[in-house]
Design a protein around this nucleic acid. Structure first.
Length: 590
DNA sequence: TCAACTTGTCATATC
DNA sequence: ACGATATGACAAGTT
């Protein structure tokens, strides 16, 4: 019947799932984009044609290499995760389906039987969502699983146990009206504890019913037909003739084993696949925030605030990124370590454990930033040992002088060294600084850039400046501010990327957790289905026709009525209903 | 030599 | 309207 088509649909579904998995994997890739190359040597070359000066800054960010290493480590961590994912995925997709229930066991069909009988079965409804995803997968895998489970070596009791024992005559003439639950129906509760606790030995007297055809199971069970669970619609005549030992017990054992194997497989796959995730679960405890919210929003605000406050002080402490800028201010010395001094406070606050451990590619940014600040002579204060230069209003030269002085031993200084220093200072200066000096601007670029508007205008009013000078000053201010803005903007962008990356990891972690939960649900579901199966067999096996003979499972099936009662109906009718009910969910899916 | 990366700058948009 | 800031795009320099 729909066996093949359903199988096809199942494989299509599995393909779809695999594709989705791969997409997730892809999300984790591309980490290398965060692997910024780190320069050991920082240079600031000014090739302004006007000045022709060229400066080289040999100062390198402290620990830049170490930071770079950390970044790589972090990057590797990120890469390893997705890299391991694919293998796990395949194993998961394989394991999960095999773990799932037999094809015929559709959850929605269990309900009628279970309704009002056993509260634990109410969970069925909650599982449906989860199960729906795996349904198709389960069908396919279960087919094979059932083949394994039910196809037993010749002579094996299981192979023939779904039919009545050969010595059990089948009354073909039993009508639905004649059929009844008999005496047992009076005091027999499908799910009464007594029944559940029935000793296995007692089941030997019951009909050993095991489906040999998984497809039929699927279709029949879908119709709230109990028999469909365990009886194929069309029973093999020969099979009917063969005697079968009691099924429930051996079958249950097989199911349990298979189930546990599948589950353990899946668990293993999950654990392996999400190993990095689990490793970071400790971090998860600290990271209550899902990280879904990008912190970029707060960063700009902090930037503006810091800039605004900083500017109040006369020169330097202007914090803007450079805060450090305050080469002229004594207080600026601390700015290097204080990232907050930077206009863009990045998200040091949001850095989680991994970043706190210094494994994040974020820190290189700090060094880079310092370097950037250093490139701007006005921001030399990021170097604590240059702090004393702060009040030197010829700051353009001071840092370089200091820096150059550090290079050779003081005793080695000769007459020519001063010239060399001057050259070096020139090289240290930015283009705008050279221009400012060429135009004889009477104040520092730092002030030009970092003073608030009011103070800036006040400063301009104190001097008699030509149009060219004023224009240059305005350009310097504009460029200086924009430079810092660009630096902050880039940091923000990087933060956003890192946050997104973290979000992806969080989502992958959630995904792994949900998969684990699903495995647990499937495990419980299978156990319950086993119970239902054994109960069905018990009930059916106790039924007797008017002649006191048991009913043939090939001819009759139990079916639940809407009111919770159980009816014995001809199998043909049960199959029809099963088919009818099977179409409904399919249509719904479309 | 070339590609990738960094940084400063400009133009423009947004606040 | 103006100034400050944000950001995309580009160019030049660096690795």
């Amino acid at each position: 019947m729909g066996w093949e088509s359903r199988l096809t649909a199942a494989s299509a579904d599995i393909d779809l799932i695999d594709i989705l998995w791969r997409q997730d994997i892809d999300l984790g890739a591309g980490r290398e984009i965060f692997d910024y190359s780190h320069r050991q040597k920082e240079q600031d070359v000014d090739k302004d044609p006007q000045d022709g000066a060229e400066q080289e800054d040999t100062w390198s960010g402290e620990g830049a290499e170490a930071l770079a290493r950390n970044l790589l480590v972090d990057g590797e961590t990120g890469e390893s995760f997705p890299a391991q994912f694919p293998a796990d995925i395949s194993s998961i997709t394989e394991a999960v389906p095999s773990e799932s229930e037999p094809p015929g066991l559709q959850n929605n069909l269990l309900s009628p039987l279970l309704t009002g009988t056993d509260s634990p079965f109410d969970l069925e409804q909650q599982w449906q969502d989860l199960m729906s995803i795996m349904e198709m997968q389960a069908m396919e895998v279960n087919t094979s699983a059932n083949e394994i489970l039910y196809s037993t070596p010749p002579g094996d009791p299981l192979s023939t146990n779904y039919s009545l024992a050969p010595n059990t005559p089948i009354n073909q003439n039993v009508s639905l009206h004649q059929a009844s639950l008999g005496g047992c129906s009076q005091d027999f509760s499908l799910f009464s504890p007594e029944v559940e606790s029935l000793p296995v030995a007692s089941s030997s007297t019951l009909l050993p019913l095991v489906p040999s055809n998984s497809t039929s199971l699927n279709s029949t069970f879908g119709s709230t037909n109990l028999a469909g669970l365990f009886f194929p619609p069309q029973l093999n005549g020969t099979a009917n003739d063969t005697a079968g030992p009691e099924l429930p017990d051996p079958l249950g054992g097989l199911l349990d084993e298979a189930m546990l194997d599948e589950i353990s497989l899946m668990d293993l796959a999950i654990e392996e696949g999400f190993n990095p995730v689990q490793a970071s679960q400790l971090e998860e405890e600290f990271d209550s925030d899902s990280g879904l919210s990008l912190d970029s929003s707060h960063s700009p605000s902090s930037l503006s605030s810091s800039e605004g406050s900083s500017s109040s002080s006369s020169s330097s402490s202007s914090s803007s990124s450079s805060s450090s800028s305050s080469s002229s201010s004594s207080s600026a010395s601390s700015s290097f370590s204080e990232e907050g001094a930077v206009g863009y406070s990045s998200d040091s606050e949001t850095l989680d454990l991994e970043e706190a451990e210094g494994a994040v590619g974020y820190q290189p940014e700090y060094s880079k930033f310092c370097r950037m600040s250093y490139q701007d002579p006005s921001q030399l204060s990021c170097l604590p040992y240059l702090e004393h230069v702060g009040h030197n209003h010829t700051y353009n030269m001071a840092p370089s002088a200091l820096d150059s002085a550090d290079l050779p031993p003081p005793s080695a200084l000769k007459k020519g060294s001063k010239e060399k220093q001057a050259d070096f200072l020139d090289k240290q200066m930015s283009r705008d600084e050279h221009r400012a000096r060429a135009m004889k601007i009477p104040f520092t670029n730092d002030k030009i850039i970092n003073l608030p508007v009011e103070e800036f205008n006040e400063l301009l009013s104190k001097y008699q400046l030509s149009e060219a000078q004023l224009s240059l000053i305005r350009d310097i201010r504009r460029r200086g501010k924009n430079k810092m803005a660009a630096q902050n903007c880039r940091k923000r962008k990087l933060d956003t990327i890192l946050n997104l990356e973290r979000d992806v990891e969080d989502l992958q972690r959630d995904k792994a957790r949900l998969l684990r939960e699903k495995v647990e649900f499937l495990r419980s579901l299978r156990q319950m289905k086993q119970k239902v199966q054994s109960l069905y067999q018990e009930v059916f096996g106790r039924l007797r026709d008017e002649n006191g003979r048991p009913y043939s499972p090939s001819q009759y099936a139990l079916q639940y009525a809407g009111d919770g009662s159980v009816l014995l109906i001809p199998r043909t009718l049960a199959d029809q209903q099963a088919r009818r009910q099977e179409r409904k969910p399919k249509d719904r899916r479309k």
